Simulated assay, not measured.
Amino acid sequence: MMILVTGASAGLGLATADALARDGQQVVLHARRPDRLTDRAVAERMHALLFGDLAAPSAVLDVARQANDLGRFDAVIHNAGVIDGPVTAVNVIAPYLLMASLAPPARSIVLSSGMHRSGSSDLDRAFAGRGDYSTSKLLVTTLAMWLADNTDTLSHAVDPGWVPTRMGGRGAPDSLEDGHRTQEWLATADAGSIDPVTGGYWYHRQARAPHPAATDPAFQVRLVERLAEVTGVELRR
């Protein structure tokens, strides 16, 4: 299988990409810049490397162009994320643009967070540059649920837990290994062994209920329409 993992120079993304490559998958690793990927041995295990700053829509579109040149992906794991700074741009707009610009993959997995439950459904605030991390994770979870309901791509959202990465901090209580195993499973397992087969919100391979807004069809539509307006790119069904 050919699998794209975004934001994979460190932390969960790197662990995910490396585990998949060691399992024999053709992994395409995305990082912001070449100097962010410091482990040469990991880089050599990858099928291909892509670089681009996902905070910039033009760079996201360039990453999509590079990815499409490699062919259609079996799975895309939207791992890239920031906890402060341009959270809406990186955590929401970038996944949307990739979903809209890539040849539709068989499967799509976005990284959510348990913090999405305290996010706001105020789209005006989020897209006026006043979004926060929790809200960005609510929105990207909603986007994953819309994709599941409206396209042929099998789409899921994963809460990896609070894990000891650069973002999570050394004192984070959850397991880093458990934090990346669910998205690997969703990307590679036989679809018949995954229940629900699409539209799941997962924590350590257990399906859970997300924030009610994420599964509200009216809110899903409002979000996708706002993203199309903001980016000038339509995500087709």
Rank of each mutant, 00 (worst) to 15 (best):
D152C: 08
S121C: 05
G171W: 04
R170P: 10
A126P: 00
D122W: 12
H116F: 08
G119S: 06
S175L: 10
T182Q: 05
R125K: 12
S136F: 09
R166F: 00
L154V: 08
S118W: 09
G129P: 02
R107N: 01
N150S: 13
V158N: 07
W185F: 15
S175C: 11
M145L: 07
R107C: 00
V140A: 04
A126K: 06
T153F: 05
L176W: 08
S112K: 13
D174T: 07
I109N: 04
V163N: 13
R181F: 05
T142E: 01
G179D: 07
P160S: 04
R166H: 11
L143R: 04
S120N: 05
R130C: 11
S118A: 15
T165S: 12
R181T: 15
T142A: 00
A126H: 08
S108R: 13
M167Q: 11
D132A: 06
T153D: 03
G168V: 12
I109F: 03
L154W: 09
R107M: 01
D132H: 09
G129E: 07
R181G: 06
S112T: 11
S136M: 12
A126C: 00
A128S: 15
T153L: 05
A157S: 14
S120E: 09
L139Q: 10
S121M: 07
T141P: 04
R117T: 11
A128I: 08
D122P: 09
G129I: 13
D178K: 13
T153A: 10
L147S: 03
S118V: 14
A144S: 15
R117I: 06
L147R: 15
T153E: 06
V140C: 00
D124Y: 00
G161K: 07
L176G: 11
R130H: 15
E177Y: 01
D124L: 05
A106H: 14
A157K: 06
G179T: 07
S134W: 00
H156I: 08
T182H: 02
G179N: 08
S155V: 00
L147I: 14
R181L: 14
A172H: 04
A148R: 02
S113P: 02
R166Y: 00
A157D: 05
V110N: 04
D178L: 14
P164A: 02
L143V: 12
G179E: 10
A128N: 14
T135Q: 05
P173K: 03
M115K: 09
S121D: 13
A126E: 00
G169V: 10
A106N: 13
L176M: 15
V110K: 00
R107Y: 04
L143N: 05
T151H: 11
L143I: 12
A148M: 09
M115I: 09
S121T: 15
R170E: 12
